[in-house]
Amino acid sequence: MSDPHAPHADHSKHYIKIWIALLVLLMVSLVPAIIAQQLHLNITGIVVVTAFAVAFIKAYLVIKHFMHLTIEKKYVGFLFLTMLAFMLVFVGGVSPDVMKHEGQRWTNDAAKKVVDEGMKAEKAGGHGEPEKH
């Protein structure tokens, strides 16, 4: 692709192509979800992985072709990566406490109780939906 900042160049065709690609990707992420829903298949893993893989690709397309981040000064991209890295640090530091309900010599009884009751209610309700693990 040529430099979108070149003066007076019209890139609308290119942008429309990207937009079509984005819509196609959206459909791709929907297909497994619809199949799972219609056929009552227990393929939550596939559904979730496809959906997030597609989300990352879509985000990349928007960042590269709409925001032109790849031809911006390098430090802008690094700034965003740093911010994302801080969020990973945050989740990494917090998840042993919040995501898990037990650890080395501790248990979170309240959270466990809520999960147990929720799972029981789900069984009793008979939603027939695949459980997510």
């Binding site: 999960v115 929720g118 997510k132």
Partner: peptide
């Protein structure tokens, strides 16, 4: 979103 993801993984019953 980080808080949501952690809760969501820690609480399988939210799927319902």
């Amino acid at each position: 979103l980080g808080s949501y993801i952690m809760h969501r993984i820690g609480h399988p019953e939210w799927a319902s």
